[in-house]
């Protein structure tokens, strides 16, 4: 084998190895790419059965009930809703009407028992006065 051929072979081998790694990453990626399921997807049985998964949506306004360390709330995507039971520390940005992602299992009774609750905030950044003004404007639209 001439050195030139040897080099070509080495490069070809490298490219093949890279391709294999890339495809493996993509396959693994594809399996875990759905970070959370919406309540509508869960209702349509698209969520995995018998293993833990994440649900995501908005915390239904007025649904949060605290009982000591236990917290009950409802996750909604405005079409479907799932009641969630959680015991533990909630993140700072956990608010009614805001985004949330919870990991756990769906019980036979339809209650999602969460082991971890994460807040999902939006991409809007504004000073408190502006947020207050937006909120007030939305309320006036709703009451009209």
């Amino acid at each position: 084998m001439k050195p030139r051929h040897k080099r070509m072979a080495a490069i070809a081998l490298g490219v093949v190895a890279l391709g294999v790694v890339a495809s493996l990453v993509l396959v693994a990626f594809n399996r875990n790419i759905v970070f959370f399921f919406t309540p509508s997807q869960v209702a349509a049985n698209e969520a995995p059965q018998g293993r833990t998964f994440r649900i995501g949506g908005l915390v239904a306004p007025g649904s949060v009930k605290r009982d000591g360390v236990d917290v009950n709330f409802v996750v909604t995507d405005t079409a479907k809703a799932i009641p969630v039971l959680y015991r533990g520390q909630l993140p700072d940005l956990f608010r009614e009407g805001k985004g949330v992602v919870a990991q756990g299992e769906l019980g036979a009774d339809g209650v999602f028992r969460a082991r971890e609750v994460l807040a999902k905030h939006d991409e809007n950044y504004m000073p408190p006065e502006a947020a207050y003004a937006v909120e007030r404007a939305q309320k006036t639209i709703q009451t009209k």
Binding site: F35, P91, D92, L93, V117, L118, A119, H121
Partner: peptide, 10 residues
């Protein structure tokens, strides 16, 4: 903010 250092999201 989220309540976690790291998640395996996309």
């Amino acid at each position: 903010t989220w309540g976690t250092w790291w998640v395996w999201d996309a």
